[in-house]
């Protein structure tokens, strides 16, 4: 097992993403950050705090559960669902930044786009991820990436966040055997 990002690296990556979000959006107007459970929600809350601090206005964060929109439900054991929490008055006309920990096949994000469409009509949808490990199966790419981590499909990427796991770290394991 190898550590790819330590706590300080993770903080720096999120701070940079926060600046990039504000730059691309020309400020914090209409921004809503929606995390995909489980770890995306914690990341969205952290990003929202950093963006709010830099911009000096409150940027809301929430959660978007995509379980019931997945295309692989019938191929796996039943998955537990998670709450969806959309802050304030919904997503109509807002710029939604989806936040997830690892971008891999892109299937989760495809499901997230469907789930989002059922909640309303966002003015724009962006994607922020902590780690992009490649191997996409859909024409999806992230707008903001903490770290590009070219990986083998045999490797496993573990994202640890203090809110969920007690510590902050991104590690990679396997792939050698």
């Amino acid at each position: 097992m190898r550590t790819v990002l330590q706590q300080a690296d993770l903080e720096r990556a999120l701070t940079r993403i926060a600046h990039e979000i504000l730059e691309a959006n020309r400020g914090a107007d209409d921004l809503v950050l929606l995390g995909i459970p489980t770890r995306g929600v914690a990341l969205a809350e952290r990003l929202a705090r950093i963006v709010s601090r830099i911009a000096g206005v409150d940027v809301p964060a929430g959660a978007l559960d995509v379980t019931m929109y997945r295309d692989d439900l019938g191929r796996n054991p039943v998955r537990a669902t998670h709450p969806t929490e959309v802050p304030g008055d919904g997503i109509d006309g807002r710029v939604v930044v989806l936040v997830d920990d690892v971008l891999y096949s892109g299937r989760t994000i495809r499901a997230a786009l469907d789930a989002l469409a059922d909640l309303g009509r966002a003015r724009a949808v962006r994607l922020a991820v902590l780690v992009d490990r490649g191997h996409r199966e859909f024409p999806i790419r992230a707008d903001y990436v903490g770290k590009n981590l070219p990986s083998s499909t045999r490797e496993r990427i573990n994202v640890h966040l203090a809110e969920v796991d007690g510590d902050d770290a991104v590690t990679i394991e396997g792939g050698d055997e």
Partner: peptide, 23 residues
């Protein structure tokens, strides 16, 4: 309890404008 928790998420869907899921 797991069933009642999933029902909470289903109840949240019933409060939306689009009440249908593709599941």
């Amino acid at each position: 309890i797991a069933l009642l928790d999933v029902a909470e998420d289903m109840a949240a869907v019933q409060e939306r404008e689009v009440k249908k899921l593709p599941t």
